[in-house]
Design a protein around this nucleic acid. Structure first.
Lengths: 333, 333
DNA sequence: CAATGGTGGGTAACCGGTTCCAGCGAAGTT
DNA sequence: AACTTCGCTGGAACCGGTTACCCACCATTG
């Protein structure tokens, strides 16, 4: 009644378990006759190797973890995460590795996550959104696993083996601001992302640098990437500066919230106010009016993160990758 | 340089590895002296048992899987999933089991998911949203793992060991409709959930049964639980039946979409149109106007699902659990 | 003082794979 | 014909835990 093991296959195929193992792992020096006999036995029984026995013997887990610093309610409302995860799954498709999603957020969760990693369940880590005060990342330096960051490298101690696969945040911001300026904007506000995240800060700094001496802190308002925060943020900015003629948002969802506020205040987009998003998520094209935005190759970032991590696990030394962004002009600017 | 093993601990504590194992597993017949020596050695070295060796020896995985039939973009936009997962994590908190989230959706994904389960990675399954034509569920009957369904039991072959932990969908629908009727509604429309899901169908049937002879198929419109679909669905219903005086939505997000359509059409809520949601998600209270809805103890369902599954894994025979819903009256009715 | 009973703990088998090593037979070389 | 060489395979050790079994030891008891 118990599962079939490699011994059963060996007996059935009339070979030793060593040979069965060699067949399973594609070892080159196995005779055609043995190989066939083994595969026949496997098909006949529906045999599947025991993952734990294999991991114990090889020392590999055949699994990687996806770290997410945000609490799960944020995670589950952010389509960018969904797409990044899709990309990661794409990258994993051809391998037989499995993917464990670990979420942080609360102190308990962060602790459990670090503990899980240290218990040796996985061979490598992909961190989706590094924070500054990231308890997960903070707990990692002393564990020897390779780590790939999908975002700018945070200024805290990191594991020795770490790589960055991300987009050119600063370049994207400059593309957006250049575009708004070319459309005649003089007073450009910005609605930023969650300030705990490293990439949000990089985007903010790019905005401040671009404005130089004319930077005005009252024209900046942080958000949390969600539509609601964009709505509130633009309202606050308009209360302080009714003459704002353009607003650049660090996510498409916040831009859609901003559109809502503009609508309620009787401001026409793009005549009275230029609005830009970031991401080029599906919802950007469906907005009213369709949203100009900065496209980031989010899915490809996910795929590349996996490739980089696999290379690192295999002992190679991959390099960091920073993807360029693209300006997408629609009707909101 | 390699990890410390149970042998190192045994040597350090001056006992045999059997004793170390007994200490680790809380075996009662270990002397105070040995126990202390072992714990001291463990603290000193930061020892952690190898999960694979343990699983191999015990035959247990110490892991359960969470199945989600929907594609990941749906998953990541549905706050109900997020909360259900929170509940599951709550339930798992005291155990040392780990949680693997498996998403279906496409044919490849479903296949990979079933394959993962059959490879023997987990000890039990929690299925979050059973579908009718659910490839994951369909692939499960012949694997002997216990399965807990967070939703009505679908009318397809299931694994022998299966339990249901869910809410009283039909009762909730009746509560909503009774309430709308008590507010004077005569022509009650319904916006349903994704018709592939079993619980959406149960809710629809409850609606039809409640209306009896006066049921009119033109007053029903399916959605996908998202705000956008609620918006479109109410528009369609109003086009067919401008005199509708109440609409019951199978999710709060769809209800919020419906509010938007009502607003755009100049209908005042609740004067011209009563609107009800389902779930009592956080957003319901924040809607404008605040949404009357049916509260479901979603988080508790998650917690209970875990308890039921753990009991089943332990060889006990738990019973199905159906939670009652509660009417929450706010300003939209 | 011998028989008894219970407790603590050492030993070894076992879980199901991988991999190194040695041996064997066939083919090639001198 | 004897000696290499080479491809293939069986056997055994090993990965790091758990657990059944057995024995030594000590405290009771008759």
């Amino acid at each position: 009644m118990s599962r079939t093991t490699i011994n059963d296959i060996a007996a059935l195929a009339g070979v030793s378990k060593g040979t069965v193992s060699r067949v399973l792992n594609g070892h080159p020096r196995v005779s055609e006759r043995s190989r066939e006999a083994v595969w026949r036995a496997i098909e006949q029984t529906g045999y599947r190797a025991n993952v734990h026995a294999r991991s114990l013997a090889t020392g590999r887990n055949n699994a990687i973890a996806l770290l997410i610093a945000a609490a799960s309610d944020q995670l589950f409302s952010d389509p960018t995460f969904a797409e990044l995860i899709e990309g990661v799954r794409d990258g994993l498709l051809e391998t037989d590795l499995s993917l464990v999603i670990l979420m942080g957020g609360s102190e308990t969760e962060d602790h459990r996550t670090v503990s899980y990693i240290k218990a040796g369940h996985v061979d490598g880590l992909i961190h989706l959104n590094p924070f500054f005060d990231d308890a997960i990342t903070a707990g990692l330096p002393d564990c020897a696993l390779p780590l790939v960051l999908c975002g700018p490298r945070p200024p805290i101690p990191l594991p020795r083996q770490n790589w960055v696969v991300t987009l050119d945040d600063a370049g994207g911001v400059r593309q957006a601001l250049d575009h708004l300026a070319s459309r005649g904007a003089h007073k450009i506000a910005m609605i930023g992302g969650d300030p705990r995240g490293v990439s949000a800060t990089v985007r903010f700094q790019a905005y401040r640098d671009w404005l130089g001496a004319s930077f005005d802190p009252d024209l900046f308002e942080p958000g949390d990437y969600g539509a609601g925060s964009g709505q509130v943020a633009l309202a606050r900015i308009l209360d302080r500066h009714p003459r704002v003629d353009a607003v650049f948002c660090a996510s498409d969802r916040m831009a859609i919230g901003a559109l809502e506020t503009a609508y309620r205040r009787g401001l026409h987009v793009p005549e009275d106010l230029l609005v830009m998003g970031f991401d080029d998520h599906r919802i950007a094209a469906l907005a009213d009016p369709p949203l100009s935005t900065i496209r980031q190759p989010i899915r490809e970032i996910g795929r590349t993160a996996v490739q980089t991590l696999l290379a690192a696990i295999a002992g190679e030394t991959p390099s960091d990758k920073v993807f360029p962004t693209h300006l997408v002009v629609r009707d909101s600017t």
